[in-house]
Simulated assay, not measured.
Amino acid sequence: MNIVKLKIVVLIEKYKKISDVARMLGLKQPTVTFHMKSLEEELGTAIFDTRRGRVILTEAGRALLYYAQRITSLTDEAVNVVADFDTLERGTLRIGAGLMPGNYYLPVVAGRFMRQFPGIQLDIKIRADNEIVQMLQQADIDLAVMHTIQPYTEENLECEVLEDDEVVLIYPAEHSFTALKKIEVNQIAQERFIQHAEGSFIRDFSERWAAANQVNLWNSAGMDSPEAVKLAVQSRSGISFYTKRGLMSCDTPDGVQTASLPGNTVPGPQITLVYRKDRPIAAAGREFASFLRKI
């Protein structure tokens, strides 16, 4: 079973016509038909069914389709990786980023990188941290920049700490907290809390902090965007947690104050470069990692 036969399965499902499949593969129609018959003979079952001038997959064909899609996708990826592996003149680098570093940390590095290597296209996905890890495991991205509270236990993931960070309390400047020399744990628990996105490191951190201090946060709203959380605090909708690095990377809006977290401490986050040990990193990925280390 060669890759051409599997590509025919994928394209038949999409176009339903042998003429269109032949055109997409740059083959003659009799050649495509020959491969289709050869595949059925090889597997000993019908894979294709012709109905009213259209070719559809049989049940066996649809079972094969799942694997054909995966194999052809991996083959295309392998060809692209090898072609671009040792060049910084062209290619695409797929980067994943957690919500905080994706908004405040990564853009600076990406801008510098693009200016130096204009032929490299950066495809950046900003998602909650649990989604980024899943994308990395599924090889949908080449590397990731994210906050981690503790190293990942997956054996195939390499975590390289870029810098330490700290979570702080943010609240409106007009808030009663402004007059206090020290903010207590119970005082935080009594305030409306603007919660960060499900699956993000800072939401996980806030839940750990609450558990460590035996309180429940009054989650009055949840927002997927860190910037939206900050603006909600600015508009006096509540208080929240934020990272120092996130506040340093842009102008803190007027009307937002910060304070260290009281009570029992929770290990602080680190901005981390994460990649898979079992997949080679192309030249663009290696160079981008070097940019990150120099910040």
Rank of each mutant, 00 (worst) to 15 (best):
I3R: 03
A97G: 09
Y15V: 07
I183N: 01
T243C: 06
Q190W: 06
P30G: 00
E13Q: 07
R293Q: 06
S220K: 02
V82P: 04
V256C: 05
I281V: 12
I149W: 15
Q69C: 08
D84E: 13
A22G: 05
S260W: 06
D224M: 10
E191G: 09
F48G: 08
L57S: 07
D123S: 00
I126D: 01
V161L: 12
Q234D: 02
L99F: 02
F34W: 15
A212S: 08
M146Q: 12
Y275L: 10
V21C: 01
L136M: 04
L180H: 04
E184I: 03
R236T: 12
E287R: 04
R51D: 15
I271E: 11
A179D: 11
D251L: 15
I170L: 02
E13M: 03
A78N: 11
E158W: 15
D254V: 10
E40Q: 07
G238S: 01
A212M: 08
L65V: 03
A212K: 10
T272Y: 06
M114E: 14
V185N: 04
A128P: 09
S225W: 06
E42Q: 14
R52F: 08
T75I: 14
G255H: 00
V9Y: 01
A283I: 00
S249Q: 14
L273Q: 08
L11R: 03
Q121C: 07
V21G: 02
V32G: 05
A282H: 06
F201C: 15
G91F: 03
N2W: 06
L169V: 10
F117T: 03
G263Y: 05
I271P: 06
F205V: 01
V185S: 05
E184A: 05
A128I: 07
V9I: 04
Q116W: 08
L162V: 04
I120H: 04
I183D: 00
T272C: 09
V81M: 09
P280E: 12
A283Y: 05
A22R: 00
E40D: 05
N219D: 07
V108Y: 13
R52Q: 12
D165C: 02
E89I: 08
I120G: 05
E163F: 12
E166R: 14
G26C: 13
A282G: 06
T87P: 05
R70A: 14
I132V: 14
Q134W: 14
I124P: 02
R276G: 09
P226V: 05
I18H: 04
E77R: 11
C250E: 15
V167C: 12
V215F: 02
A60D: 11
N130E: 14
E41Y: 01
N216E: 12
E227P: 07
G61W: 00
G119Y: 03
H147E: 15
G102P: 11
Y105H: 10
V133W: 08
